[in-house]
Amino acid sequence: MKNSLAILAVALAMAPAHAAYPDRPIKLIVPWGAGGDTDVIYRTFQQDFQKRLGGTVVVANVGGASGTKGAKEAKDSPPDGYTIFAVHDSIHSTYYTGVADVNWTDFQPICLVTATPSILTAAPKTPWKDAKAMLADAKAKPGTVTVGATLGSTSHFFPAMVEKAAGVKFKYVSYEGTAARMNALLGSHIDLAESNLTQKGKADAGQMKFLAIATEKRMAEIPNVPTLKELGIDVEYAVNRGLVAPKGTPPDVMAKLGAACAGAATNPAFAEQMKKHGTIVHYLDAKGYTAFLKKNDAVNKQLAKELGLLKR
């Protein structure tokens, strides 16, 4: 209530003074529920972002169908700069696995904001002391180590890359969404799952085991957790979050959005806040982000193909 009043007040105040963009609130569609990683990251980001933009930015959670419901809504919105979309890697995977018809090419990239490195995590009741023991076991008994994942999404693709690189075979069980996956891991109903640094508290308490992190170098927060690369598994993986606008958004508007994003993303205070969420700021401008998305898209297509999930 208070929010919408504030929006109204701002909208009224802005309207006569500036005819230029933005003269009314901008809707930032987050295709996942409130309180999830994406939501938390963008709600933090939005505060500085809207200040630099000189207008109000409202985060709208449009969850459902593996994040594709929000994607569809964003794609069908008028390309006037008043609707922007918080995208992550699942846009590629859900397209290639046939969950939705929306792909990144339906949008114009604004900027890449963050990267959250994935950690291969084991359940507390598993016998393995480290990643090596787990891999040895998985090699000895193919298809018995269970992995919980949102099928066709990032939490499925990451263990699948490990599977391929290490030459082992896992068994996948569908747990949609991070919360369900973490519950199953805590109760040892699955052996392995993808998690990230936000679960550090539970790992420290012995409620789950961080086996290996998919970064190039070890992270300062968890110096004892080896990288997959150290273990001879050539996998780097992170969930990358950026901003895009519907295709056809005017260049001057794109420029304004891009400039505001650059300022907000490179603000040291933002990096500090992101640390708490196990997330690294990884800023790329529109051009760099376009190249990034193109490359990421090809990687995801190849992965979907190798996993036998490719539907296009």
Binding site: G33, A34, G35, N61, N183, L186, G187
Partner: peptide
């Protein structure tokens, strides 16, 4: 609870 982004359940 769901609207406020809180997952109900054992945790």
């Amino acid at each position: 609870l769901t609207i406020h982004g809180i997952q109900s359940g054992p945790l």
